[in-house]
């Protein structure tokens, strides 16, 4: 499993890509990659590889929409949202990250995403 970090001057700087030339990324994939990094860190006892994912988490927190979700596909270089599809995938990642970091920093974002799911189910 490997990824390439986006250049620091890009809108979604340092976000992961599957190839060196890729610009459009599925944020649900970023979330799943992040969860797998956390799981591997738990198994190995070394949280070193989590460092970059913490940066991604902070970006997820400040880019969460008022609906509690995130755009599913974005252009990492320009920041453009590629289509209207939304994802709640980052919430699972943020919840697991908060647990492993002993941190409440992501709790509000996770709650907002969960409330979004509940209201969608109720609707």
């Amino acid at each position: 499993m490997e990824y390439f970090a986006a250049p620091v001057e890009w809108y979604w700087e340092l976000f992961p890509r599957q190839t060196e030339v890729e610009e459009v990324v599925d944020l649900g994939w970023v979330a799943r990659l992040s969860v797998s990094i956390i799981e591997r860190a738990k198994q190995s006892g070394d949280s070193g590889p989590i460092g970059p994912a913490m940066h991604w988490a902070h970006r997820f927190v400040i880019t969460q929409g008022v609906d509690g979700a995130w755009p599913a596909k974005v252009n990492l270089r320009t920041g453009e949202v590629v289509d209207s599809t939304r994802t709640l995938g980052p919430a699972d990642f943020l919840e697991k990250l908060g647990d492993i970091l002993n941190s409440s920093e992501f709790d509000r974002a996770v709650t907002r995403a969960r409330e979004s799911i509940c209201s969608a189910e109720a609707g």
Binding site: M1, E2, Y3, F4, A5, A6, P7, V8, L14, P16, E20, S36, I37, R40, Q43, S44, D46, G48, P49, G51, P52
Partner: peptide, 16 residues
Amino acid sequence: MQQDERIDLAAQNARR
């Protein structure tokens, strides 16, 4: 982490 650096997670976790 350097920009455009390839990060190989499998290699990072090969430990004994």
